[in-house]
Design a protein around this nucleic acid. Structure first.
Lengths: 244, 244
DNA sequence: CGGCGAGGTTGATCTGTGTCAAATCTCGCG
DNA sequence: CGCGAGATTTGACACAGATCAACCTCGCCG
């Protein structure tokens, strides 16, 4: 490797989609091996974001999509009247920044909830290379559409579930995502505060706190601070199916 | 025109994006004139959907995106436990079916709330032609992303507004969309029932009904059945800004 | 042209969450 | 290693919106 190489280029070197453990959830997921080298060029740089810092903020010009290599983020929206809404929590292998594609500005902010590493992928490159690699193009569409489906799921949660069901859904969703990444599905750290959970679920932090206590009393979970252990996954699922 | 031409082809003949009044909100929006002929080929057929019928249903295989030429639709989701959630209302010039792009199945249903006409655009063609016409490709991305942004707006509504604010937001949103289409922003027909409004806004139909009455009493609107006339738009906006 | 059924309104009451408040815990930092 | 700010828990109480119920309205079909 040449000395004097730019930082971005150095960082880029460290990254190869081919070897990335998270490839299948990422943009290069379905890209066949022979196109992979081309596709790797869309990873322009890696960025390290410290806990509490913004990867991007509402109003920023849109340039990149970001793939989370390690870490945890929340995205949130603030309307003109100052109402804040957490719109999602994102973990390794997931993509951030897709909503900026609409009109060249990021409508939301993404804040790291722990020290995190991301791959920055300029949209201009994705677009350009996508034209030559249909599987990449398709994957991008698919990822955008899945985000829409996810959002509709949250609308269902907010629009037709009671507090208990919302929190159960939230825990089960996190559990499933951790499992898919090879972490324990039963025990994990909540990276976010009760208030952030509340904002996401359309509840107040006190309600979230009470529900955690109640779930513990009912034997569904053990909770100590931010560490959750789901003792009875089936029970939580049943709670959703109950529909009193 | 040849006799014996297939129905689909006949229908197709009637459609030219170049002359379509709704082009700018549709997929061909930014496509330059010289590429338009190519892009028009993605409109495979027109379909007429009667009030109450489904354009597509949850579980259907995904093939097409649909542009609404005339009419009005709701989309809705039903979860395993039978909870139903209306996820959106769509009017002429808007696109339906994008959420199916994720995994080849339509996760939601789209029901016509009045007799409607749509352009069916097979995804395979959009994909293929998009590769040659970057402005189309880009437009598709943009439209998908805008849907994400819209959904986040609904999440904000459901997660942090009170009933009064939700309904005011809903009315103002409809008003704005009618205006952009050249219809009256002040007076329009609600195509959906109180129950469907309620589902969309996370409220019960009784609450929706009461709020309409209250808004009328407070001089914001006149309402007779499904006909709304917004008497005081600024007042409704102020109601949102108030944040008691 | 009359009756039926779906949709809508309104009232009374109930209840799940919000609100407010106070005590406790935790963790980063000097 | 202790301090202070922010986070969490818990309790008491209030209230927005749900629920239940009765009645109304209107379009439509026989």
């Amino acid at each position: 490797m040449r000395p004097g190489m730019s930082t971005a280029a150095q960082l880029k070197r460290e990254v190869t989609c081919a070897k990335c453990r998270l490839r299948e959830t990422c943009l290069s997921g379905d890209v066949p091996a022979e196109d992979l080298e081309r596709v790797e060029n869309i990873v322009y740089a890696r960025r390290r974001i410290r806990r509490g810092e913004a990867l991007f903020s509402a109003g920023d010009p849109f340039r990149c999509l970001y793939a989370i290599r390690t870490g945890f983020f929340k995205t949130s929206l603030v309307d003109r009247e100052g109402r804040e809404q957490v719109t999602g929590f994102f973990m390794s292998g997931e993509l951030l920044g897709m909503d900026g594609l609409g009109d060249g500005r990021c409508p939301a902010s993404a804040i790291a909830l722990e020290d995190s590493d991301v791959c920055a992928m300029p949209y201009s490159l994705i677009e350009y290379i996508g034209r030559e690699v249909p599987s990449l193009q398709r994957r991008l569409h698919s990822v955008l559409a899945r985000e829409i489906v996810r959002d509709h799921g949250v609308m269902l949660l907010l629009g037709s579930m009671c507090a208990e069901e919302r929190l159960a859904t939230f825990l089960l969703n996190l559990s499933k995502r951790f499992r898919r990444r090879g972490y324990s599905e039963a025990e994990f750290h909540l990276r976010m505060t009760r208030e952030e959970i509340g904002s996401y679920l359309g509840l107040k932090l006190e309600t979230v706190s009470r529900l955690f206590s109640q779930f513990q009393k009912d034997g569904y979970i053990k909770i100590a601070q931010k560490l959750v252990r789901i003792v009875n996954i089936a029970g939580l699922e049943l709670l959703l199916a109950a529909r009193n």
